[in-house]
Design a protein around this nucleic acid. Structure first.
Length: 152
DNA sequence: GCCAACGTTGGC
DNA sequence: GCCAACGTTGGC
């Protein structure tokens, strides 16, 4: 059992959008960064814990608790010329991009970025490090427990 | 809209 | 393999 923080722009897919989705589950399509892809493809397991993070918005922060809900599979948007995420160099016989499904466990109060930065227990979180841009980052068990207590 | 930080691309 | 140019991310 591992833990992750996954960023989503609420204008694209907010915590409320996931809550309204069938089975409260969405395919995590659109990741086009190799490190983030590798986390999904190589390291995630169904049942892993996910902190659902709102980015590029007026109030960035953790907006819900979710979980990994599938094994990795190819991202269909890479083969769709009409998609914003189309990748002309990916081949169906060798898909470049894979993703998992994410299921919302519960929407929480917003744990805002300033509040996260103020907590010593979270000081080492990958997502808070200067220069971090990765849309998926590992979370330690201690960080996971701390945040779950705060949002309980 | 600005800009720092980082990733990717492509010429050499 | 180097590295400059360019594109993207994401907080502010």
């Amino acid at each position: 059992m591992r833990y992750w923080l996954m960023k989503s722009e609420p204008s694209e897919c907010s915590v409320d959008d996931v809550a309204a989705a069938p089975k409260k589950t969405v395919p995590w399509v659109g990741v086009r960064n190799y490190q983030a892809r590798n986390f999904m493809r190589d390291e995630m397991r169904a049942g892993d814990g996910v902190l659902f993070y709102h980015s590029s918005c007026p109030e960035p922060g953790i907006a819900g608790i979710a979980e990994v809900a599938s094994t990795p599979y190819p991202d269909a948007t890479q083969f769709d010329p009409k998609s914003h995420y189309f990748d002309a160099r990916s081949r169906p016989e060798a898909p470049r991009w894979q993703h998992v499904d994410v299921r919302l466990v519960k929407k929480t109060r917003l744990l805002g970025l300033p509040e996260m930065r103020a907590l010593p227990a979270l000081a080492a979180m990958r997502v808070l490090q200067k220069g971090n841009r990765l849309s998926i980052t590992p979370v330690s068990a201690a960080e996971w427990q701390k945040i779950n207590r705060l949002l309980a």
